[in-house]
Amino acid sequence: MNILAGLARGLITALAALGVIAYGLAALVTVADIIGRRFGLPIEGVVDLVQLFVVGGAWLVMPYAFLSAAHVSVDFLVENMPRGLAVPLKLFAGVLALGLLGLMLWQGFLTFRTRTMFGDTSQQLGIPIAWYWYPLLVGLAVSLIAVVVELTASLRREARA
């Protein structure tokens, strides 16, 4: 179990790093275009590329946000609740998160199939739309794992406390 959790954490952090690298590429492409166009060498379809890198980055970092419990919540009411409620509430939150993410992944996959079947492409460069969707599918699938890993770890902390 610990080995699995360790593997999952490794995967999630690797994806997060990859996502931030994608952001970096978006920035670099933009700057290259800004400089290039002063010399008549603009980068064609820069908007398409920036969107690809930013959308890709956003979905690849998503599991990390779940793993590190970066998602904000309002804490002060929960603090005043009886201790015994903490575990059921955590489970409830985890189940809702899994349900929502799971439905998004399932329906997202169907939408992905429709859009690729239509042969959709980006507006300027004609990049196949599938390239914008792969990060979403990966991000949502790994986010499901991240929720489970985070939930298990936090329930364990609860049990110790």
Partner: peptide, 12 residues
Amino acid sequence: VFETAGLTGMIF
């Protein structure tokens, strides 16, 4: 890198 990841993942 990881701060950027956590913060943007949460905003998005």
